[in-house]
Amino acid sequence: MTAFIVFTKERTHDQSQLDLYQSQVRDTFDGHPIDLVVKGTPHALEGAQAEGMVILAFPTPAAARAWYDSPAYEAVAAHRLKGATYSVALVESSNE
Rank of each mutant, 00 (worst) to 15 (best):
P71M: 14
G40R: 04
Q49F: 14
A77H: 09
V38A: 12
E74M: 06
V25F: 00
I55H: 11
S87N: 13
A66E: 10
A63F: 04
T28S: 09
Q22F: 02
L36Q: 15
Y73N: 09
L20N: 14
S70W: 01
Y86K: 02
P59R: 06
K82S: 14
W67Q: 11
E74T: 08
P61A: 10
Y68K: 06
A63G: 07
I55W: 11
S16Q: 14
R65C: 04
V91S: 13
K39P: 01
P59W: 01
G52Q: 02
K82R: 13
A78Q: 11
L36C: 15
P42L: 08
A64W: 02
S70K: 05
P59D: 07
D35M: 02
V88R: 11
T41Y: 04
A64C: 02
A48H: 09
P59Q: 09
A72V: 06
D30T: 05
Y21A: 11
S87G: 15
P33A: 09
L81Y: 14
A44C: 07
Y86F: 11
V37T: 02
D35A: 02
V91C: 10
I55R: 07
L36N: 04
Y21T: 01
L90W: 11
K39F: 12
I34A: 03
A66C: 08
D69S: 11
V91L: 10
E51R: 13
L56Q: 03
V38L: 15
A62K: 15
G47F: 05
D69R: 14
H79F: 10
V88Q: 06
A64K: 00
Y73F: 12
H79S: 10
K82E: 10
I34L: 06
S16W: 05
P71F: 09
M53G: 10
V38Y: 07
F58P: 00
T28K: 03
V76D: 00
A72E: 13
S23C: 02
I34Q: 10
E51M: 00
Q24C: 09
Y73I: 00
K39I: 08
V38H: 07
G83R: 14
F58R: 01
